[in-house]
């Protein structure tokens, strides 16, 4: 394998990068000041329906989420486990689209100007929407960063470089298979933070050991000054706390989505109390994270 990968923009420097919203940097600065790790929470946009989903997202900062990661639903989420696959399909069945996801972010921003929003998903809906148009609309909606699972550095010309030029962070996933030789390639055009996928596998599956995470975070820190968030397989407040001790933030996804699933009625619609239950769970995660370095 080669570290010198042609990204279509080899002389990449400051000229190719527009100033971003500053929300992510400000958040990680606050976390540093507070001496704690952050909590990144994931929910799928429009799950189980637009209105419920918006209420969840609007409630997340108050429940202690430091960064909100919102899934862009896709029919074929190849890196996701059963929970998030089902969430995607629920949202799509309820009529969610990429346009709807951007609308949800726009509505959220009307009452929250500070909490960073990261959109996570797969490339095809963005490609179909049109990359330039998507970036313009996402920036206008108040999106701070993108995580696109099926765009490795080898395809940086597709979305990563245009996103950086449009002032939207492109957050790359580093994984246990990303060795020291490849890591510089993965980090080259990463911005905002680095998302370390702590296991080889899909979301909501296995859990990495604390020892493995410690070693991986240490390795990443030797290669980058960017904040490091760790995700995949973090399902409990205790696990979130343990990761928040070792990294700059812990990402919890499937476990939150499972709270949504647990609050659906027999027809698959939101039961009364869904939003409160999900936010109560996020509060326990947040308390875990906040107590972690206490």
């Amino acid at each position: 394998m080669s570290a010198a990968i042609d990204t279509g923009n080899t002389g990449f420097g400051d000229t190719g990068r527009a100033a971003d919203s500053g929300r992510l940097a400000a958040k990680f600065e606050t976390l540093r000041r507070e001496g704690r790790g952050g909590l990144v929470t994931f929910v799928t946009a429009g799950d189980p329906d637009y209105a419920t989903s918006l209420r969840i997202v609007q409630g997340l900062p108050g429940a202690g989420a430091d960064v909100i990661e919102i899934g862009m639903p896709f029919t074929d989420p190849m890196a996701d486990g059963p929970s998030i696959q089902a969430a995607s399909l629920r949202a799509l069945r309820a009529g969610m689209t990429l346009r709807g996801t951007l609308k949800l972010v726009t509505e959220f921003r009307q009452t929250d100007a500070e909490t960073p929003i990261i959109l996570m998903g797969y490339y095809n809906p963005i490609y179909s929407y049109g990359v330039e148009r998507f970036l313009t609309d996402a920036r206008a909606a108040g999106v701070d960063g993108l995580i696109v699972v099926d765009l490795p550095p080898e395809e940086d010309g597709e979305l990563c470089l245009p996103a950086l030029a449009a002032g939207i962070n492109f957050i790359r996933l580093a994984t246990p298979t990303t060795d020291d030789k490849r890591l510089p390639t993965v980090l080259a055009n990463t911005s905002g933070f680095v998302y370390y996928v702590s296991i080889t596998g899909i979301t909501g599956a296995a859990t990495a050991t604390e020892e493995a995470i410690t070693e991986a975070v240490g390795r990443l820190r030797r290669h980058t000054d960017l904040p490091v968030a760790v995700g995949f397989g973090i399902t409990t407040p205790a696990a979130a706390a343990s990761v928040a001790r070792l990294a700059d933030a812990a990402v919890v996804g499937s476990a939150i989505v499972n709270r949504i699933t647990a609050n659906l009625d027999e027809t698959g619609l939101a039961a009364p109390g869904l939003v409160d239950d999900v936010l109560a769970f996020v509060r326990t995660l947040s308390e875990g994270v906040r107590a972690a370095r206490g």
Binding site: M1, P152, P153, E154, R172, L173, A174, T178, D179, V186
Partner: peptide, 18 residues
């Protein structure tokens, strides 16, 4: 064409190619 896969698979895809 191209290589639109998750990072976890990329090193392996490059190994297969080699």
């Amino acid at each position: 064409g191209g290589r639109f896969v998750a990072e976890t698979l990329m090193p392996l895809i490059l190994d297969v190619e080699g």
